[in-house]
């Protein structure tokens, strides 16, 4: 298979970047998108050019490291991570545009690599249950209704890849933040910090410079793990509840 790639090349955060065109052949349809980029990079190295930098690690769709915008879609045309997207979803002769996540809160580091540390700081603001090691009660002390456990799991599946932010026209991190808030707030173990968690995580999200939510739904469409759009409404509800309670103190 032959492809024309147009790839965003940017030396570092302080240098402007541009789309650069590469023609590449001998692409097998069994390759993953990242293996296609590997193939390009091997050729670039041998030509004495710098390979395209991109984040990747587990290559089985769970670590959340990889992610590029392919022809305008975060993670490309299939609902999966970039590492699990295979070249059989492209046709011989296609032109494929490859760009980094674009958001003010995710500055480009180099080429297709962006800085997503803002996500870590949102989690640090309250995306946890405070339980020092050794202080835990017996696991069966608190049964959790299966429906709640399933709801928690559905949101805990978030891999923190940032596709939601990349897809959102406002660069909003609401889906990411709501996934963690909903995961922990529905569990009895998370109840004592239920209000502080949502208030602190939302303000951390705002401080990082993510945009607001206009409910375009782009985030949930791009999410490789299927975090649903109603997560955002559920977090809004938590936030309003917490704000009301906090103001009564």
């Amino acid at each position: 298979m032959r492809l024309t790639l147009r790839v965003w090349r940017q030396r570092n955060a302080d240098t402007p970047g541009a789309m650069v065109t590469y023609d590449i052949d001998d692409i097998s349809e069994d390759m993953s998108f990242l293996e296609m980029l590997d193939t390009l990079n091997e050729k670039l190295i041998l030509r004495g050019e710098e390979p395209v930098a991109f984040d990747h690690d587990c290559r089985e769709g769970i670590c959340g490291a990889c992610g590029v915008v392919i022809n305008g879609d975060a993670h490309g045309p299939e609902r999966t991570t970039t590492c699990q997207l295979h070249m059989r979803h492209f046709d011989d002769g296609d032109t494929v545009d490859v760009e980094p996540w674009r958001a003010g809160a995710f500055p480009v580091v180099k080429d297709l690599v962006v800085d997503r540390s803002a996500f870590d700081r949102i989690i640090g603001a309250g995306g946890y249950i405070s339980v020092p090691t050794g202080a835990a009660p017996e696991a069966h002390a608190t049964p959790v209704p299966k429906a709640d456990a399933d709801f928690a799991f559905e949101h805990a599946e978030c891999i923190g890849c940032g596709a939601c932010v990349a897809a959102c026209p406002n660069g909003s991190a609401m889906l990411f933040t709501s996934a963690k808030v909903n995961h922990l707030n529905v569990l009895p173990q998370g109840a004592p910090e239920r209000e502080t968690r949502v208030l602190d995580m939302v303000s951390a999200m705002d401080e990082e410079g993510f945009g607001g939510c206009t409910l375009t739904g782009e985030c949930a469409t791009a999410c490789p793990k299927g975090i649903p759009l109603p997560s955002i409404a559920a977090m809004n509800k938590e936030w309003l509840r917490a704000t009301r309670k906090a103001s009564r103190r």
């Binding site: 147009r6 965003w8 789309m19 915008v69 022809n71 305008g72 879609d73 545009d97 760009e99 674009r102 958001a103 003010g104 809160a105 959102c168 026209p169 406002n170 660069g171 909003s172 410079g209 993510f210 945009g211 607001g212 206009t214 409910l215 375009t216 739904g217 782009e218």
Partner: peptide
């Protein structure tokens, strides 16, 4: 204020343009 913030949160556009979301959403 929110629009200003949203626009600032997405300072650079994608080179590959594509139509997104419903008409009602885009025209708010």
């Amino acid at each position: 204020q929110l629009s200003r913030r949203d626009i600032a949160a997405r300072p650079s556009k994608y080179a590959h343009k594509r139509r997104r979301t419903s008409y009602a959403t885009r025209t708010m």
